[in-house]
Write a protein that binds this DNA or RNA. Sequence first.
DNA 1: AGTGAATGTTAATCTAGTTTAACATCATTT
DNA 2: AAATGATGTTAAACTAGATTAACATTCACT
Lengths: 194, 194
Amino acid sequence: MNFAPLLKYIANYVSLTATEIAFLESKLTIRTYLKGQYIVQQGDICKNVGFVLSGCTKTFYVDKEGQEHILMFSVEDWWTSDMGSFITQTPAYFNVQCLENTELVMFSYEANEELYEAIPKLERFFRLIIQKAFVSSQERIVRNFSLSAKEQYLHFRDQYPLIEQRIPQYMIASYLGITKEFLSKIKSQLILEQ
Amino acid sequence: MNFAPLLKYIANYVSLTATEIAFLESKLTIRTYLKGQYIVQQGDICKNVGFVLSGCTKTFYVDKEGQEHILMFSVEDWWTSDMGSFITQTPAYFNVQCLENTELVMFSYEANEELYEAIPKLERFFRLIIQKAFVSSQERIVRNFSLSAKEQYLHFRDQYPLIEQRIPQYMIASYLGITKEFLSKIKSQLILEQ
DNA sequence: AGTGAATGTTAATCTAGTTTAACATCATTT
DNA sequence: AAATGATGTTAAACTAGATTAACATTCACT
């Protein structure tokens, strides 16, 4: 059970005693999924929030035309879940699927509640990371309506250079909200421009 | 000092004792702004999160072309601030301006920190409301790339029928990420369709 | 009541990004 | 090495929404 990356991550926000760490670990589980497996499917109740130890997932939504829209990718040291489903324990709107073999630390709904009761510092920890997630979600909304597709792609490439290498281009197009054909055009334009 | 709407709102999430309420109130201030006044300007450090008692604000971003993009409206029982600036105490990205005379309960950064220390239930409260804000921000991203402008307008009208009455149409267009001319076209189409 | 500013409408022209469809490349399995 | 499926490219035709510009309406103030 390798909780080290999670503990290091938490230590950026709050500091836990040895006893608290032991209690925390006792409430968590580690689970591995194979490439292609679903962690959550649209309509499920999302029972866990996962912290990625290794691998990569995509969170996406299939619209009424059957089109897939990718909301986020999660790699090492990121979180993955359908937060809406998790917090209200109602059917999920999103799918979460593994793009690689993926190892996760699982925080179940019940474990989270117990952890908040027992260790208020963890409530602070989650408040802090959700605040950050909220802010970056808002920033993305702004980018959506103030940047062109090309500018958004450049921003993505800039901000997540490592993710771009690991993920097929048509999924990046879906994340950016454009077609794979248009992303291909943008990339060939960028090559000409250099 | 009329904190009643705030206390009622908080009671939906956590229950406070009379002593806790007294302490909370001692850390808060109420401030009124006139229509047109700025609560936060791009570049300021956002010192407060405001809870709207009455009135209405818009949170917007001015892009490099000078175009204004409205991220949210806040009316009674909603929150208003530049959350990114507030949590990191760095210069704001957004402007917050009053669309009506507006009365706010102000939570300063320092007050918030003291409140979290003194009353862990308030840390829970903020965690819960930020979780909700994060989820609705994600839902908006999905709508942005899976709905047409017309569908997005109908969704807005459905979800915020009262807000639509109070706000000029060109600001609603800005919120939806379309031009006022196109929103006008959509509305005349909808009238024909009936 | 009349004037100017703010808000809203209409229509023509334009463009960023979509759709469709055919083809190219790459990786995996047999 | 051939075959299959997954991924990526190119180009032509199309469309949702932007831009521009002229005009209409409503509001707020003297």
